[in-house]
Nucleic acid binder design. Structure first.
Lengths: 204, 204, 204, 204
DNA sequence: ACGTAATCGAGACGGTACGTCAAGTCTTACT
DNA sequence: AGTAAGACTTGACGTACCGTCTCGATTACGT
């Protein structure tokens, strides 16, 4: 799993005063708070600084952009919490999909990821940082699908990456663009599509 | 089909000097140009105004936000061009999916839609305008799927809206977040998933 | 006395529809009202137009500047009202000075004249219009002083214009710059200065 | 004498980057220049900023209005320069009056003071700042008159403040409203009025 | 233990853009 | 023809943040 930070750590100086961990945490905390209060668009470095009781320059020293700051803040404030694999493909896939719903379709973070995605669309470094943040979730889903392919629940040559894109994309798009909630029914529809090849049906 | 404009037309005045169509077109043209040159994020009303040779106030008179302006500009600059229905579900669905790729995954517009979606996520009016813009594309896809269900190619109780979310979502997500091109292979994978219930396979 | 208008009457058209007196009066009335409500500085042509239920262009057709409009409005709304001359120099001079106090030191108008003076300081036409407005008051004072000189109350070679400047200036300056009220005491001091050559004394 | 500044100094911060004196001077210089070029009315903060090579916000940080800025600029660019008292009342009074002429009736400043007076007529703070600026001139005149009263040239109970209003007012009014030059003749008339109780006479 | 060097808060600074307001001109349609 | 309504360009307003830059004042090393 990824333990790397996305922060743009400046070259470690051989001597001098060390970076103050308290300050660092205060900045990340303030970022998470403001993200919840005003959302990504209206979050400004200036506000983070004053909320954290910190100079603006301190933030710029450690993060080179708003997106980098927010990504690290979400990483710390939103750790990946995946249940243990049970070995049952259906149960495990359902858990992976529900985890994706948490990431993409719930609360502040749900609306932050798309904003981030749009913002970094012209910035290669930022895009990579965002992918780093999303990777653990994707890794978890991949493991589940690999396992399912291994036990024969899925065809052996299934294109796992595209399958992942399918269900994350559906959740992402429905929540972000269509502004519809992603509920248990849809989760079940996705599970059935992937494991049974059964297209979603309307509920009679 | 939707012929409505998304522009925030101020109450139609019964009298007074008529709106100058040249001015209006110049604004929309400048918006489209700048969208291509600098992208949605860096597009500012100020730049649009100076590029169009127009006062800022004129823009604000007719559009109450950057998003409203951009949506109308895209609508005019990117008309829905769908091929005639052939009656063959596979051919028509492929065309609909390719049209979605054009909208969500190609060029400036591809990166504009997500930025718009993120921006209007806190603004009910803007969100509605965005949906108005996207509706014709969605309508076209719906018709194709209805037709397929009618002729028995799809099960009669298929949840068409969710199916649409599936393929648009996959295209959207792959292009925006994963920064991968959406090619003919993927289009074919989506067609087969929907019409044959066949999960995507890796190419040997 | 001056019966001329200061309005910038456009060249009288030989034919066509005549200037509408109702419209004209409504504009002047609205100007006087707004002058009282918001003062000269914050009076805008736009507000006058909407208050008068009139198009902006109509105002610009008949007056070429805010100052011209305001001057005419004051002329109509603030006619010179001088008491009959009694023949007694002291009484008549006191009346003339009190009239100057009314013009320069009381209410909205008091603060309008200096603003006008400042505004027209770079505009020869406007300056002339302002002088036209002030002339009747000055004429009245001059008559009184002439009379006083004729009957020997003032030396025959007194420089009447400068004497007028003295008392108007004192009133003007004290009210505008020093923001002090101009009361009966000061009026009396001015009368005594002019008629008796007695410098103002403090009140014991 | 008053050494106080009229600048609206924000609460002196105990910490933070110090105010840059170069920047400050550049703003005041630009203000004085523009005052001479376009006058008070057409002087805009925006122009001052661009002329001084400075951000608008920097100006607004230190001065809360155009009038405050202009007053301080005049203060620095137009220091009170009074000749030594000779002890001779006539000589000293003549010098004080000539100083008033300089302030109120000459050049850019002459037309700036009335504009300022008109502008601050609705603003108590601004009015006070203007009085602060004018105070040193008034103080000088007061001293002279006090001296004259002390040596018996003036009656002991003369109302010095009103006498000052008289001659400043005459100069102010004649220059601003009547647009007439204030020459040596008038200065002499004022001196004689005050010291000899002799009303101004026409020159034969 | 001490001096050195980097960190930190605070916030000044030159900018860009915001969204608003009014000025003064021009156009259209009504009366 | 005169007028109301109001579209339009222009330019300034005062505010918010941007990202960079000084300031002093504080630490925590390495010697």
């Amino acid at each position: 799993m990824s333990n790397e930070t996305v922060a743009a750590d400046p070259p470690a100086p051989s001597t001098g005063r060390a970076r103050n961990p308290r300050t660092h945490q205060a900045i990340l905390d303030a970022t998470v708070q403001l993200l919840g209060e005003v959302g990504y668009q209206d979050l400004s470095i200036e506000r983070v600084a004053s909320r954290a009781g910190v100079g603006k320059a301190t933030i710029y020293r450690w993060w080179n952009s708003k997106s980098a700051l927010v990504i690290e803040a979400m990483e710390r404030g939103l750790p990946v919490e995946l249940p243990e694999h049970t070995g049952d493909p259906r149960t495990d896939l359902r858990a992976a999909i529900q985890s994706a719903v948490q990431t993409y379709a719930v609360g502040q973070v749900g609306s932050t990821v798309p904003a981030l995605a749009a913002e970094v669309s012209r910035d290669a470094t930022g895009a990579e940082q965002l992918r780093q943040f999303l990777r653990p979730r994707r890794d978890a889903a991949r493991e589940v699908l690999h396992q399912a392919a291994a036990v024969g629940t899925l065809p052996p040559d299934v294109d796992i990456e595209t399958v992942i894109d399918l269900f994350i994309g559906a959740i992402f798009y429905r929540s972000l663009v269509r502004k519809l909630p992603v509920d248990a029914v849809m989760v079940e529809q996705l599970v059935e599509l992937i494991l049974d090849g059964r297209l979603p049906r309307t509920i009679p």
